[in-house]
């Protein structure tokens, strides 16, 4: 029997796309400005860092893990890019090389320690504090100048609803979706997430899979940081903090569960879109940003509540 994981997980996320469509229709109907090319362009630019991080986060959550450090990694990226002196020696793209290496190193450390048995949340909270310290050391207060070439590239608008940040995020999504749903590596991620011991016995190098997943997540954080640089044109050691929990929210709303091995990137795509559009619509309806915390929290709780109610695993958890 042919096991086609991609088909199953696209199918699983179809209801989410109907919800997304519903939100889209309601949004277009209730405010005049939602369905304009300028606003859609804006939504897609705002969405891009979240989508990028959420894609990486999906791999980690599929492994029954979590990566709280991505937000700090994104912040660190902006501070490294705003290091003027570094650029002086290595050219405009020098800092990019440095930050990618740092990102891989952080992901490697996370993955290795978590494979060795450190609880994911403790490990990534720890590395998040560590990375935040480095970022604050580089730039105690927001500021500095990012190379004009880089900043301009990461915020370029390409006409109609398209922009470089959005295209980058969609490309990153496509690459990771290909990795997860069409390669052996992806199948191993699902297998390792569902049952690590069995996967080990089946000959999967679960240590490699775990480390690679956390590296992907960390590098996603770096990419999101680059996209943030396109928005703020400077370094800010705290700018990315929100991304950690927002990305987990997007992944969970997208139907990937902490039980491991269930879910996928097509759900995450819908989850990220739902969160971004909700946020945009709430802004346009002049709902004070303070209420958005409440609404976001409730969306998280209720979407998980619903997805667990609807899932076939219900009987299992009732006992």
């Amino acid at each position: 029997m042919k096991f086609n994981s991609s088909y199953i997980f696209v199918k699983r996320s179809i209801p989410l796309y109907f919800i997304l469509l519903g939100i889209f229709v309601v949004a277009s109907a209730s405010t005049d400005h939602f369905f304009t090319s300028e606003n859609i362009l804006n939504v897609l630019v705002q969405l891009s860092p979240l989508l990028v991080v959420a894609c990486g986060q999906t791999f980690v959550v599929l492994l029954q893990g979590i990566d709280i450090s991505v937000g700090a990694v994104a912040s660190l990226t902006t501070t490294v890019l705003a290091l003027g002196s570094f650029e002086h020696f290595f050219g405009a793209w020098g800092p990019m090389f440095l930050i990618v290496v740092l990102g891989v190193a952080i992901g490697f450390l996370n993955g290795l320690m978590i494979y060795k048995g450190v609880t994911p949340i403790i490990m990534t909270l720890g590395s998040s504090v560590l990375v935040k310290g480095i970022a604050l050391g580089l730039r105690p207060i927001p500021g500095g100048n990012v190379s004009f070439t880089i900043a301009e590239f990461f915020c370029k608008e390409l006409g109609w609803i398209f922009s470089v940040p959005f295209l980058i995020s969609i490309t990153w999504f496509s690459i990771l979706a290909f990795l997860l749903h069409f390669t052996r590596f992806g199948k191993y991620v699902y297998a390792t997430g569902a049952d690590r011991d069995v996967s080990n016995k089946a000959g999967i190098n679960t240590m490699k899979i775990t480390i690679l997943a956390y590296i992907l997540s960390s590098v996603s954080g770096v990419l999101a940081g680059l996209l943030l640089v396109g928005q703020i044109w400077s370094g800010d050691a705290l700018i990315g903090e929100k991304l950690s929990l927002d990305s987990v929210t997007a992944v969970l709303v997208g139907g990937t569960t902490f039980e491991g091995g269930v879910g996928g990137l097509f759900g995450t795509l819908a989850g990220a879109f739902i969160l971004s559009i909700m946020s945009n619509v709430l802004n346009m309806m002049n709902i004070f940003s303070y209420y958005q915390y409440v609404i976001k929290g409730l969306i998280l709780i209720f979407s998980i509540f619903l997805s667990l109610r609807l899932s076939s695993r219900k009987e299992k958890s009732i006992r």
């Binding site: 720890g126 590395s127 998040s128 504090v129 560590l130 990375v131 935040k132 310290g133 480095i134 970022a135 604050l136 050391g137 105690p140």
Partner: peptide, 8 residues
């Protein structure tokens, strides 16, 4: 910053 690094 140093405190965060050491604590982490």
């Amino acid at each position: 910053p140093g405190k965060f690094i050491v604590q982490g």
